[in-house]
Design a protein around this nucleic acid. Structure first.
Lengths: 338, 338
DNA sequence: TTGAAAGCGCTACCAG
DNA sequence: CTGGTAGCGCTTTCAA
């Protein structure tokens, strides 16, 4: 099961087997055939570790995300994967569950694997990690955190714009009593949405109120948050969620309580994951183009035709407002008053 | 960035650095400290490839699944991952998208990575792959396919039992006009559920009819299948879906057509993914314990305390029927007759 | 077109 | 407790 075994069986040197395996065209046809035959008969699988050790490179791209359970991250991963496979790269993912410790250990693992490039799609980045990665000798791309640098590309979404659109829409429908359901409020990128909410509200509807509830990034988390929110009056007329996943959880709780959406309360999500179309009512949300993000990641991480990875840039991606069935005019009299 | 650099900086040999890095307790405290310091200052990351090459092993477990988009697979992956991390193993996943080619190439990749063990959770296994893996020198576990062998563990779910419970329940509610919505009908494991359906129906309600519709394993697929089903009369009184994901898609299409569930038609899923509780109406389904499966996978793949991997067994896992809100008595008169 | 041989960075064994 | 060193399996010059 080693190169040498194949070489012996084919009656050639290991160098030649290596050439055949790597598609170097210099090998004579007949030799190549003999080698291939030996490889097949031995069911030989090159040891990838030896390969990347000897070669010094790795055709593997690393992707670190905060929460694979959230389809948002999974979609990005899949987009990257699809590009990678098309170009003969492998992908390896790691999940941080929003913890800085896991992030640190994942980064070390990826660096240890000598990945060709590393995408960091998390909300919990701290300065140390950023610094460490800046000195790493590979292209790195941060999503939503860190800053562009020599080997660092930064991709960010203009959340502010998305939030503004939601706020405009909701206030135009007469809403002024809001709730914001989120997770990990302390983390920077998430905080940005919340601040954007305050800011746009200040302009669109200065006297509006907003209660914030925090829970985990999951269906259950959304539901729990809604439960918490509903524990005390007054029930807001609009519930904005930091993402679709939590919004679907919110929808569930409201339905159980026979609170109608959007008649009694409007609900919005963020991301536009597939599920947002399939839940009931379909979610008004903001589309974040995961495909585009994935492709951009891939291009920033791998050398293009001209031979150089296009790292060091900053990309800003504009989200798109999507109106569906979970939003409507604010209820006029407070039927939930106690 | 190599062991040697650290050794030099710390004024010791590479062997000692290696010892420190691997936690061998034989190293003197002061020496250890010096080494650690050098490691930190150099921001040294051991090259994992060199490590597994030299060590001959890899503390990495491979997991191959058919469709990560289906939370069912993701749940299993997460269970394995959690066990692995707890025991200091890494996990690397691969997705086959239900294609035999991708499966073959994923298997090769995993073998090339010299994984310590390989879990194959797919529906599209063919004999070649099974044979190849039987000769591999690592513990392998198949879910739902293949058969137990010297290094092969097999885990299967007693689908038949699950299907029987659904059929019993539905026929007891007066249903006799069924539809079965599935994906990849040609693949063995999926076929098993379908056959189980026919068999149990033959006993429970011999004159029952069942129309089969096939589409992709996704929310969209479920919806398309429902659309196809509804294209021609009569509308069945019960729609059984091969899994929850497709069932949620079906629910969406029915709702759009104002067909009430369960008043007009009953719908069942399979798997009991989280989403089945959060959709509306909550799905009657069959619980498949992904956690248990994940743990079993892990134990079959890794040497236990006694030092040997418990491969070669066959585990049969019993599913559990879960009644929720998507099923009810068959409608008496056919309100959908045309 | 092919072979020989020098590493890639690390582990593990044998001395000391 | 520590150092020296022989590989692990492969890629990649350099010669032939």
């Amino acid at each position: 099961m080693s190169l040498e075994a194949v070489a012996k069986k084919a009656g050639v040197s290991t160098a030649t087997v290596s050439r055949v395996l790597n598609g170097l065209t210099v090998v004579k046809g007949s030799t190549r055939a003999r080698v291939m035959k030996a490889v097949a008969e031995l069911k030989y699988h090159p040891n990838l570790h030896a390969r990347s050790l000897a070669g010094g490179r790795s055709r593997t791209v690393g992707v670190i995300v905060s929460n694979l359970d959230n389809p948002f991250f999974l979609d990005i991963y899949r987009a990257v994967e699809s590009d990678c496979h098309a170009q003969g790269y492998e992908v390896v993912v790691a999940n941080t569950a929003y913890t800085a410790e896991q992030l640190a250990s994942s980064v070390r693992l990826m660096l240890g694997r000598r990945v060709a490039g590393l995408a960091v799609i998390v909300s919990e980045v701290d300065e140390e990690v950023v610094a460490e990665l800046s000195e790493a000798n590979i292209p790195v791309v941060f999503y939503d955190v860190g800053r562009a640098g020599k080997n660092i590309t930064k991709i960010r979404v203009n959340y502010r714009k998305g939030v503004e659109r939601i706020v405009e829409y909701l206030t135009s429908l007469g809403h002024s009593d809001f709730a914001f359901i989120t997770h990990h409020a302390a983390l920077g990128p998430l905080n940005e949405r919340q601040n954007a909410l305050y800011d746009s509200l200040k302009i669109a509807s200065p006297k509006a109120t907003v209660r914030v509830v925090v829970d985990s990034d999951s269906l259950d988390g959304g539901r729990q948050a809604a439960r918490e929110l509903l524990r005390s009056a007054p029930v807001p007329t609009a519930i904005m969620c930091v993402n679709d996943l939590m919004a679907v959880g919110v929808l569930k709780e409201l339905r159980e309580r026979r609170i109608r959406v959007p008649e009694d309360v409007s609900v919005t999500g963020f991301d536009n994951i597939k599920l947002s179309e399939f839940c009931h009512p379909a979610l008004t949300t903001v589309h974040i183009p995961r495909d585009l993000i994935g492709h951009t990641l891939f291009h920033s991480l791998t050398p293009d035709a001209s031979g150089s990875a296009a790292a060091g840039r900053e990309y800003v991606i504009d989200p798109e407002f999507v109106v569906r069935d979970s939003t409507g005019p604010a209820r006029s009299s407070d039927v939930f008053a106690r």
